[in-house]
Measured scan of single mutants.
Amino acid sequence: EEEKYTVIYPYTARDQDEMNLERGAVVEVIQKNLEGWWKIRYQGKEGWAPASYLKKNSG
C-alpha cells in the first residue's frame, strides 16, 4: 500500500541524500523513522525529507 503525501512547505535539500520539495507536490513515503525524517519517492528519485513538511492525503 503506497502512502501518498502532499508537500505543504517548500524544502531545499541540504545534503546529497535529501530531496528538494516543491509545495503541492505529491510524494510517496516509503520509510518512516523516529527522528522526523522520512524516505520518500518523487519523480523516480528517492531521498529523505522532513516529515513535518508533508501532509497525508485523505482517501
Rank of each mutant, 00 (worst) to 15 (best):
E1H: 02
E1Y: 04
E1N: 11
E2C: 03
E3L: 11
E3M: 09
K4V: 10
K4D: 13
Y5R: 02
Y5V: 04
T6H: 12
T6M: 11
V7T: 04
V7A: 14
V7F: 03
I8F: 05
I8H: 08
I8A: 15
Y9N: 15
P10R: 10
Y11K: 03
T12C: 11
T12Y: 07
T12F: 07
A13T: 08
A13D: 05
R14A: 14
R14L: 04
R14I: 06
D15Q: 14
D15E: 13
Q16F: 03
Q16K: 09
D17A: 12
D17G: 14
E18Y: 09
E18S: 12
M19E: 01
M19T: 10
M19H: 05
N20V: 08
N20G: 12
N20C: 07
L21R: 00
L21Y: 01
E22C: 10
E22V: 09
R23V: 11
R23F: 06
R23W: 03
R23A: 11
G24D: 10
G24T: 02
G24F: 02
A25F: 04
A25V: 08
V26Y: 03
V26S: 06
E28C: 09
V29D: 00
V29S: 01
I30G: 02
I30Y: 03
I30D: 02
I30F: 05
I30K: 06
Q31Y: 10
Q31R: 08
K32W: 03
K32S: 10
K32V: 03
N33K: 14
N33T: 12
N33A: 10
L34A: 15
E35L: 10
E35C: 06
E35D: 14
G36E: 13
W37L: 02
W37R: 13
W38M: 01
R41L: 05
Y42F: 14
Q43S: 08
Q43E: 14
Q43C: 12
G44V: 00
G44L: 02
G44D: 06
E46N: 10
E46C: 10
E46S: 07
E46A: 11
G47N: 02
G47H: 04
G47V: 08
G47F: 09
W48D: 02
A49F: 11
P50V: 01
P50E: 02
A51M: 09
S52V: 05
Y53H: 12
Y53P: 01
Y53S: 15
Y53T: 13
L54N: 00
K55R: 09
K55W: 04
K55Q: 11
N57K: 09
N57I: 14
N57P: 07
N57C: 10
S58P: 14
S58V: 07
S58Y: 10
